[in-house]
Each structure stands twice: as C-alpha cells, then as structure tokens.
Amino acid sequence: MEFLSFLIKRVLWSVLVLVGLSMVIFVIARVVPGDPARMALGPRATPEQVATMQAELGLDQPILQQYALFIEGLTRGDLGKSLLTERPVNDDIRETFAATFELVLCTMILAMGFGVPLGMIAAYWKDKWPDTAVRFFAIFAAVTPSFFLALLLQILAGYVLHLLPTTGRLPNSMEFEASWTGLLLIDSLISGRLDVFGEALRHLLLPALALAAATMGQMARLTRASMIDVSRQDYIEAARAFGIPEWLRVTKYMLRPSFVPPLTIMGLEFASLIGGAFVVEMVFAWPGMAAYGIRTILQKDLNAVMGVVMVSGVFFVLVNLAIDVLVGFVDPRVRIRGRR
C-alpha cells in the first residue's frame, strides 16, 4: 500500500520533469535561433518561401500557442520531419533507438556486474593491495576520455590482435531482421539463430566496454565507500555477536544496505552515460540514435536534433523511475517513508 502511493508520487513526478524538459527543448528549438524557418531554409531562400514555412510550422502564431502545438505534437509522438532523411523523425529514431538501447543496456550490466564486486573486494581488503588496485583502476577509468578509450580498444583488440570486430552491429555478410524487440541479442535467440547471437555479442563487446569503463569505476568507488560505511554500523557488529558467519555478513547483511547509494547515483550518472554513447557510437560506427543525432547536427537538422534530445531525456527519466522502484524494493525505508 505504501509502496503504491510511493510509486504514484514518483510517476507524477517524472511527468512533471518531462513537461519541464519539453519547455527547455522548445526554448532551444524555437526561441534561441530567432527564426527557425530561415535557419532551415538557408540564407538563399526568398522571403515568400520563409513566410510559407513559417505558416507551415505555426511560427506566425503567439509563442504560447506555438508551445501548445509543440506539446500536442509530442503527445501524438510526432517530432516533425527530418531535413536530412526527409522522413518523420519519429521513424528515424525508432529505427536507431534499439541499437542504442542494446548498447546502453549491456553497458549498465557490465558496469554493475564488475563495478559492484570490485567495490566489495576493495572494501573487504581495505588499505590492502586489492583496495589500492581497485582505487587505481577507478581513477583511471574515470579520467580516460571515452572516445580515447574507444580508439585504443579499437586499435588493440581490432587491428593489432584481430580479436574482435571494430565497427557496426553485425558483419555486412550476415542477413538478419531483428523484428521482435529490435535487440539483436534477444531477437536472435527467439529465432534460434545462435550464429547471429554470437556475432552480435562480439560486435557489442568493445563499444560496451569503452562506454562502461567510467561508470564501472564510479560504481566500484561508491560501493566501496558505502560498504565501509555500513561495516561500521552497529547492526553488523550485532550480526557478528549473534554468530552470523563472515561470508554471509559480507554478501547479505552488508551488501544490501550498501547497494542503495550506488544505485541512486547510477541513475543520475545515467545522463553522462548517454552523453558518452554519442562519442562511442561515432567511433564504432554503431547505427544508433546518438550517431543519428551527430549526423543531423552537422546538417543543422533541427527537428531531428530536438527529437534526439527529447528521447534522451525521456530515456533518462524512465531509467531513473525504474531505479527508484528497484531502490524501493531493496530498501524498505524508502518505500515506507517514501524518500531516499
């Protein structure tokens, strides 16, 4: 019951953030450029052409009405037409988003799957060599530019060692239509194409690693700090006094309460992960939404760029919603008191 009201509050809250986000995007798209129609048509357009376009975009109406139109378009999922591809932005994004989603999802799994255990190891052997090694790794992971890491991985694993493919999601020679979820890893399993699954995984590994490194280091650092904090709590001493074995104290009694801060921050850091995806997709020629965004920016394709920004924001909000629900499950204090 408490959880339900917590959930409802959290969802309403996300909607509010999305409204704010739409305002920001509206300001960037319609107010900052001065005259979007002129911008879209270029300097050589005639005044008549500009006027026609203004009417088409509703730019001759008062600003509030323009915003209402913009919102109305958004609710219908209409992000306008891309100047670059001359197709609805909506379709372009839908086609490219799955690739980005697959990359980001694998990145998060990598970051959590390695970051949390590394943090536990560092906390358990605090001030011993494993701790030093993990902290060293965490700092280097945080300060290596993702594009630089991407390039290094590409040279090393791709060109020098010839271990893994360095571009795209699948080899050109491979025919496969990801028609269920758009995620190659899942669709290939559904259709029983293990060869596709293997290739998709091989293609995914380097980009995901390049993108995950910084978050992985951050997770390791946060988990370490949180575990050390929890290990000083009375309830851990009490568990010791009641004869709970050490492995259980570390993996259950300490891990679960220390899991909340890293998880919450992981949600907030998700924004920088999306930012990183823009760079990594470019380096690995990953056919995702971020790469699409960069191409359209260079073409001054305003509708497409705003669509990409909006979808990134929605992605961020949804991920944070999911993480908050997860935090609610992990920590009863959150779902009972309704706050972090």
């Binding site: 704010g20 960037i28 924004a271 920088s272 930012g275 920016i297 760029v305």
Partner: peptide, 23 residues
C-alpha cells in the same frame, strides 16, 4: 530543486550538441 531535476535529465554533452546545431 525542481528546475535542478529537469536539468539533470539532459546530458551536458547532448545539450552542447543541440546548441551547436541551433547556433
């Protein structure tokens, strides 16, 4: 704090890209 929450939802890199596109 609510404005802060909205601003957190936009990656700085993406914002810079959008502004680069507009200006």
């Amino acid at each position: 704090m609510r404005i802060t929450d909205v601003a957190l939802a936009i990656p700085p890199l993406v914002m810079a890209l959008a502004v680069a596109a507009v200006l």
